[in-house]
Amino acid sequence: MLKLDGVSKVYRVGAFGGRELKAVSDVSFEVGEGEVVSLIGESGSGKSTLGRMILRLASVSGGTITLDGRDITSIKDRKEYYRQVQGVFQDPFSCYNPVFRADRVFAMIKEQYFPRAGADEWRKRVEGALESVRLDPGNVLGKYPHQLSGGQLQRMLIARAVLLDIRLLVADEIISMLDASTRIDVLNLLADLRARGLGILFVTHDLSLGNYVSDRTVVLRHGKIVEMGRTDLVFGSPAHPYTRSLLASVPRLHAKWTDAEMTDAVEDVPCAYHEAPQESRTRPGLAEIDSDHYVACADKEKA
């Protein structure tokens, strides 16, 4: 459904844009229908930039992003694109205009997409969408953003996306600002949406969250893909030293770091990319070491 092909993003910085800053370089992956893909990376990995490019909030410097084979920048009518692709962001409080009531995010959708819907009919649709994200309409409608909790606000934003017949949702760090007792419920919502056939790009820095919800995983570092593929393969048998060190650093509940330290000694492991036969290098810079498990060369970074 959504396909990124050699996508890169270059920022011009300094006087007269003299210097170039490559935030994303040559990234290719796909998100299919009914599939959750996690995009995992630390700060500065370019993961949010990728999300913004897919949402057309940032321009694409190189490569193409296509939706069902159509270059998304060629879709002149943004509204038509946004009917199919929507986003939810990290900070729920900043997503609401503090001057207005929170349910204005729904009114905006009505105004732009369903101007002719009757008030009663629209109200029913909103209530239906709220119930689908497990919110009681009576509790949240008519309130101001500062009167609601982060979890409620974030769910309302998901409900907003659901009001349109979207096919792809870009969820950019949507639970990192929520409390532990509510974040899992929002995460489960994504799983519910997936069951309804939506494709979801789940951008996160938290490996355990990505692992919990996603079918496929893309690990980014400094704007490049270091490893990607089926989540169970990437997390179960990580091939790139960066992925391994990330996994070793993640705090776990029942294993202390010291126990995991043993797997930390990865420097002597030969580069999986070079170990793989020549014909497995089906994608530029990546070798397919298992079915749907790609890894980038690690030697290059050591040098």
Binding site: L55, Y82, G87, S94, N97, P98, M108, I109
Partner: peptide, 26 residues
């Protein structure tokens, strides 16, 4: 750069209207 401006863009609202209805009231 606030997210609600991005959200308005994602709702298909055009620039002059975003300035008038989202930014100016703030």
């Amino acid at each position: 750069s606030r997210d609600f401006v991005d959200l308005a863009r994602l709702s298909g609202v055009r620039t002059p209207r975003i300035i008038l209805r989202e930014i100016a009231p703030n």
